[in-house]
Simulated assay, not measured.
Amino acid sequence: MSIRVDHQGWWSRPAERQKVPGPRRGSPLPGEPGPDTFRVSARVALTPEELTLATVDDFLAVLRLVLERSGLTAGQVAAKTSIARSSAYNLVSVSRRGLPVDPDQVLLFLTGCGLRMDQVDEIMRAWGRFALERRRHRASGELRPEPEPPRRNVDVGVDRCLEQLRLVRAAGDLDKAVTWARRLTSALLAEKAVEHVAARSVCSG
């Protein structure tokens, strides 16, 4: 079965294609190539217990479970869909703690893995519940504010860089993680330079 992912309505099943004469049954329609159109075989199914998603950790665990059942790698799923390779791996990273912010990515990932569409819908409804809960907590001030990226021309120590890198990576913000990783490299080089100067002073003394 070929489907087109509907980015405007992630909470419902993608609309079925209209039948057109010409192509043999089950083949992609001509003139409709693209990263969001791909072959889908609904060969992955979860049990009701596995679909019981009470927390964000449960949600992240089920993404990893679906990938495992599919027999694919995250890179192979990315190749089938419009998801960036790094984003696909980030969705199922064991170090991830935050809810994925882009529901379209989650939808593409699940359909790319071949999960049954009724179960895709159920998982996406769970995403909607968690996203709403997060917005409510953010509005009430219960959520801890996200760490800010380092300002330019401000020296930041190695320990602080490591701490912030762990936080933003756990939150799934790869852009900020890259920023902090660069700062960490600079801080390590600066620390090494200080140790080198200190060692030379000891030798000369």
Score class of each variant (00 low, 15 high):
residue 156 V to M: 04
residue 88 A to Q: 08
residue 76 Q to L: 03
residue 155 D to W: 07
residue 118 D to R: 11
residue 133 E to R: 05
residue 135 R to L: 09
residue 78 A to Y: 05
residue 119 Q to E: 15
residue 180 W to S: 11
residue 94 V to C: 02
residue 173 D to Y: 09
residue 100 P to S: 02
residue 69 R to V: 06
residue 105 Q to F: 13
residue 105 Q to L: 15
residue 108 L to C: 07
residue 108 L to E: 09
residue 104 D to A: 15
residue 138 R to V: 00
residue 152 R to S: 15
residue 162 L to S: 02
residue 90 N to P: 00
residue 99 L to R: 00
residue 130 F to R: 03
residue 109 F to I: 00
residue 101 V to Y: 02
residue 94 V to P: 03
residue 140 S to M: 07
residue 163 E to L: 12
residue 103 P to G: 11
residue 84 A to F: 11
residue 142 E to T: 05
residue 167 L to C: 05
residue 95 S to L: 11
residue 159 D to C: 07
residue 166 R to I: 10
residue 105 Q to K: 13
residue 187 A to M: 09
residue 101 V to R: 11
residue 92 V to M: 13
residue 158 V to G: 03
residue 128 G to D: 10
residue 101 V to T: 07
residue 115 L to G: 02
residue 118 D to N: 14
residue 155 D to N: 04
residue 87 S to L: 07
residue 98 G to D: 15
residue 114 G to I: 01
residue 79 A to H: 04
residue 97 R to G: 10
residue 151 R to Y: 11
residue 140 S to A: 11
residue 147 P to L: 10
residue 83 I to P: 02
residue 71 G to C: 03
residue 170 A to Y: 01
residue 166 R to F: 05
residue 154 V to T: 14
residue 188 L to V: 08
residue 135 R to G: 07
residue 104 D to T: 06
residue 177 A to H: 06
residue 187 A to P: 10
residue 181 A to C: 04
residue 143 L to G: 01
residue 107 L to G: 05
residue 79 A to R: 08
residue 149 P to G: 12
residue 99 L to Q: 03
residue 164 Q to D: 14
residue 146 E to A: 14
residue 90 N to A: 08
residue 92 V to G: 13
residue 186 S to W: 08
residue 188 L to R: 08
residue 161 C to T: 09
residue 77 V to I: 12
residue 147 P to F: 10
residue 139 A to Y: 13
residue 139 A to L: 15
residue 95 S to A: 06
residue 139 A to V: 08
residue 136 R to L: 14
residue 76 Q to P: 01
residue 157 G to M: 05
residue 76 Q to R: 05
residue 110 L to P: 00
residue 82 S to A: 15
residue 136 R to Q: 12
residue 73 T to A: 06
residue 115 L to R: 04
residue 111 T to W: 01
residue 156 V to N: 05
residue 98 G to M: 13
residue 117 M to W: 08
residue 85 R to M: 02
residue 148 E to Q: 15
residue 110 L to H: 07
residue 81 T to Y: 01
residue 109 F to T: 08
residue 172 G to R: 07
residue 116 R to M: 09
residue 72 L to E: 00
residue 123 I to F: 00
residue 118 D to K: 11
residue 116 R to V: 06
residue 193 A to R: 15
residue 157 G to W: 06
residue 178 V to R: 14
residue 182 R to N: 15
residue 124 M to Y: 06
residue 149 P to F: 06
residue 177 A to C: 12
residue 161 C to Y: 09
residue 132 L to S: 14
residue 182 R to P: 07
residue 111 T to L: 05
residue 133 E to H: 08
residue 175 D to H: 04
residue 117 M to L: 15
residue 190 A to F: 00
residue 114 G to Q: 03
residue 68 E to Y: 14
residue 99 L to E: 03
residue 146 E to Q: 13
residue 160 R to L: 12
residue 127 W to E: 10
residue 147 P to E: 12
residue 77 V to Y: 04
residue 134 R to L: 11
residue 102 D to L: 08
residue 113 C to K: 04
residue 68 E to M: 07
residue 186 S to Y: 10
residue 154 V to W: 13
residue 176 K to N: 12
residue 158 V to N: 05
residue 191 E to S: 14
residue 171 A to P: 06
residue 139 A to T: 08
residue 96 R to P: 09
residue 163 E to M: 05
residue 162 L to Q: 00
residue 168 V to H: 00
residue 107 L to H: 06
residue 145 P to D: 11
residue 164 Q to W: 05
residue 178 V to K: 09
residue 99 L to G: 00
residue 93 S to L: 03
residue 163 E to Y: 11
residue 142 E to Y: 07
residue 191 E to T: 10
